[in-house]
């Protein structure tokens, strides 16, 4: 049986969210984390918001190269090739 010696407070839990998502919590810490999430709708909403933030970031365009910059780099490539 796992002993929940100390329950996490919500304020403590929000500091562990990244460790949790990165798989960096110990087995015992993971149990404490998940048991808190299971009975706290505030923290459940918080975790969901972090997940949504990550997912939304993945939909930002990674940034594109301007045609001018690309042309300049290709010119440099041709110079290099012919040298």
């Amino acid at each position: 049986m796992t002993v929940y010696a100390e329950q996490l407070s919500c304020q403590e839990l929000v500091e562990l969210v990244t460790d949790y998502l990165e798989g960096a919590l110990s087995e015992e810490e993971t149990v404490r984390f998940e048991s808190h999430i299971g009975r706290c709708d505030g923290c459940q909403a918080y975790l969901e918001q972090i997940r949504q933030t990550v997912a939304l970031s993945g939909r930002l365009s990674a940034g594109v190269l301007s045609p001018e910059a690309e042309r300049a780099l290709l010119d440099a490539f041709r110079d290099w090739r012919s040298s």
């Binding site: 929000v14 500091e15 969210v17 990244t18 460790d19 990165e22 960096a24 918001q49 972090i50 949504q52 933030t53 990550v54 939304l56 970031s57």
Partner: peptide, 15 residues
């Protein structure tokens, strides 16, 4: 992980 945590936390708060 610390840098990622701070970054995600702030961005969540802004959203």
């Amino acid at each position: 992980r610390v840098l990622l945590h701070r970054a995600r936390s702030k961005v969540r708060a802004a959203l």
